[in-house]
Write a protein that binds this DNA or RNA. Structure first.
Lengths: 234, 234
DNA sequence: GAGTTTTTTCATGATTTTTTCTCCGTTGTG
DNA sequence: CACAACGGAGAAAAAATCATGAAAAAACTC
């Protein structure tokens, strides 16, 4: 996935040069030549990083940096400057920049600093995204209830709604034997008026999908004269 | 809430000086004089930041940095060095440092950089407070919650309020399947009295806007007999 | 308050799933 | 071994679900 970088730099040559270099680390870059343009672009597109020259026409880099910081999402900002004065460096960082480079800088260092910013973001955001949804397992077969996903040895199996509900019912009651009408009551709902035969058909199609050899089922077993139960899949 | 900083520096005078200065920004600091000691301290206490001299006896700063990075939790590392060679700077950043300072450095700048690191952490870890909002992504599609902006491969997509909220809900729960009434409850609010059909229409318009081929959606997928889920967009 | 945009409701046709039905092999029983 | 009940397989019929487009209602703007 390509990252988007916004380069804010009035020197067109330098801007293009930077743009060229960030391509090497798989990043796309747009260029803004003054502060006003930069702010408009920043608001109209989701950038992953901003490279910002502090000396700009129309609006200086410090003000621009503050305005960007006020606009919602956190986007890392790397400041560039020709002044080597310490005061500027400190002001830049105080005002919300995440890093600071003094011109002339080397491109390897710029790229290294860009990557360092991305790494921080990754490390910090790459966390509680994983919803802990209920998981059931029988042998190699796993069911994720929230995602309604079934995998066998990691391979995804596409099930219809009823197939999934039926299989889930077995997975939730390992080893237990159910008659067809019990299954109709529990999975279809007690108000369902239909034939026991319906269950057969569903078990059938389920077996076609999940069993290696549907003639010798391992997950859903027939209990002759009674109904079905789930095996351990092994 | 005081922050804990680990200073890894063999020059005892400089170490104490740094320790003294970080007190000004309400930070406590421990000092390690060599790499082995540093690693033991790093593992035995939860630090918020590490200041690391690259030239160390026993174990050099680069190796130490890598070892720390391997130890799970993300702690920002600021490297110090007397060598001004560009290669070192780049190696330092490549190896997992978040920032890099060349001796002699000024204390205001060191403190500014420390604060910049903390600010990043705050912005990214602190739950989406009103100011700092989050970015969500599914494939080429990105959502900036603060700006209420959606882009696909950098191109901005104009969504209405409901469309945005609905899409955001999917983006926040990747892969999770929702029924139409769940979506009505979660996105519209449980007090909403309306038809499931409403969801269809919105999904429909969303697809027209975000899908390359609305007939073969990649972002919002239909789960037959259940509802909808978001795909990974690829 | 008129005009625009957004949201909701509704109707239709296409598609998928579910149910029903039939045939045939299998299993258990006497 | 024969007979009857049972379960499996497949196809056809029925039902449910969804996409689409259009119209009505509501919300918002100027």
């Amino acid at each position: 996935m390509k990252k988007n970088i916004l380069i804010v730099e009035d020197n067109a040559d330098l801007a293009s040069l930077v743009q060229l270099h960030v391509l090497d680390i798989n990043c796309d870059a747009d260029i803004a030549h003054d502060g006003g343009q930069a702010l408009r672009m920043y608001q109209s597109k989701a950038y992953d990083l901003v490279i910002l020259d502090i000396m700009l026409p129309v609006m200086d880099g410090i003000s621009l940096c503050q305005k960007m910081r006020d606009k919602g999402a956190y986007v890392p900002i790397i400041m560039l400057t020709s002044k080597a004065s310490e005061l500027d460096r400190v002001v830049g960082l105080e005002v919300g920049a995440d890093d600071y480079l003094t011109k002339p800088f080397s491109f390897p260092e710029l790229l290294a600093r860009i990557k360092a910013q991305f790494r921080t973001i990754e490390a910090l955001t790459h966390k509680p995204t994983h919803q802990t949804s209920e998981l059931f397992q029988m042998g190699y077969l796993r069911m994720d209830v929230g995602k309604r996903l079934v995998t066998i040895q990691g391979k995804a199996i596409a099930l219809t709604a009823k197939e999934f509900d039926l299989l889930l019912y077995f997975a939730k009651h390992p080893g237990q034997v159910f008659t067809r009408s019990q299954l109709l009551d529990q999975v279809w709902g007690y108000q369902f008026e239909g034939y026991d035969h319906t269950v057969n058909t569903h078990i059938n199609r389920l077996r076609l999908k999940i069993e290696a050899d549907p003639a010798k089922p391992k997950y859903i077993l027939t209990v002759w004269g009674v109904g079905y139960k789930c095996g351990d899949g092994i």
